[in-house]
Design a protein around this nucleic acid. Structure first.
Lengths: 190, 190
DNA sequence: TAACGATCTTAACTTAAGTCAATGCAGCAA
DNA sequence: TTGCTGCATTGACTTAAGTTAAGATCGTTA
């Protein structure tokens, strides 16, 4: 399991192998059963983040009408940053395990502590964050300029595994369309 | 002009006033005429970033069919991170000044140098980046789950200034719709 | 096994947005 | 002033996606 992290870090880090291993030892790795909530909408929360080693986590919230709006699926090697911008510290989103999961779990204190301990670590996560941001902006652009059908084709290419792992109606929501539309699109394309 | 930056930094920083001012002195601030390109699509580029003190910068690219796809407008107090993920270091996007602009200009070296010089600065930009990422993800979610009309209404609320500052057809592209649709939507809402 | 609920599909209908084309309008240059 | 150019509006038409509602399928549990 840990080799996933090692591999991931290797792309970014200027840290020594020794440091990398020692960091790994300090990380909190937890297992969660399918259906578990990592956090619920409106939960009080301090800063938290996760890194998916195994499994699939869904991020969603309920809109005014009470519909579930799925905003993201996180799978292997993806980082989850929890939005907690509001002054009240109540989470806008819920995070729930679509499958059994193995996650690295971190909070603000543990993160700060590690940054103190390993100089160079913060600049590494900083760079990871920048890349993640740019990638998110790219996806934003492609999505916003695509029809629902084009968005489905894109996801088919970029994350084919999701189609198998996730219920259609949740995927439809993630793609910004109704389950009926997604069903029709699939039929249209064969 | 600089008070904008001071104000902005104040929200994030743990740096002393003295340090803040000294950082400000080191920053490169440049003026650009309306129509100037900060970077063109396919330009070779190393890491660059900007911070808008005054003016409006448009980010766009040409799609396969040769249409201009506008992906962002950056205005006062917004940071521009250039996407340069590709190994070839060719910029996916163009950045052009919609108005006369005053920008903080930074590149990878100057950034690294400052981080060395002022400990605590990197963790500040790191936090800014996290917030920016979460905000982008939020926008992504609202946009993807909105109709073109709803997106227009949202922008009307969140960035009313844009409607005045930017040509309609570019705004339409940014909102992921045709200029004709935007025109009709405006008429519909009055 | 049967029955229930949840999910997915299908169908009929409505509507908003895309497409294509024409017109209107403003700014600019000759 | 005239005419050019680019942008915005309008109209007619097409189409894909939303809406509503009815079945079909699947899995779970009693």
């Amino acid at each position: 399991m840990k080799e996933i992290l090692i591999k991931y870090m290797a792309d970014y880090t200027s840290l020594s192998e020794l440091q990398q291993h020692s960091i790994m030892e300090e990380l909190v790795i937890e297992k969660f059963k399918k259906g578990t909530y990592l956090i619920k909408q409106q939960d009080f929360t301090t800063k938290k983040c996760f890194f998916v080693l195994k499994g699939c986590v869904r991020q969603y919230h309920l809109d005014e009408a009470g519909n579930e709006i799925t905003s993201n699926f996180y799978t292997e090697e993806q980082a989850i940053l929890l939005n907690y911008e509001d002054a009240d510290h109540l989470s806008k989103y819920a995070l729930t395990c679509v499958e059994d999961c193995v996650l690295v779990v971190a909070d603000l204190e543990s993160e700060q502590k590690m940054y103190m301990e390993y100089s160079g670590l913060e600049s590494m996560t900083h760079r990871m964050m920048e890349n993640y941001l740019c990638q998110t902006q790219d996806e934003f652009t492609t999505f916003i300029h695509s029809s629902p059908e084009a968005r489905y084709k894109t996801i088919t290419q970029s994350r084919p595994d999701l189609l198998k792992r996730v219920p259609q109606h949740q995927l439809a929501s993630y793609l910004g369309m109704t389950p009926e539309s997604l069903s029709r699109i699939k039929k249209r394309i064969q």
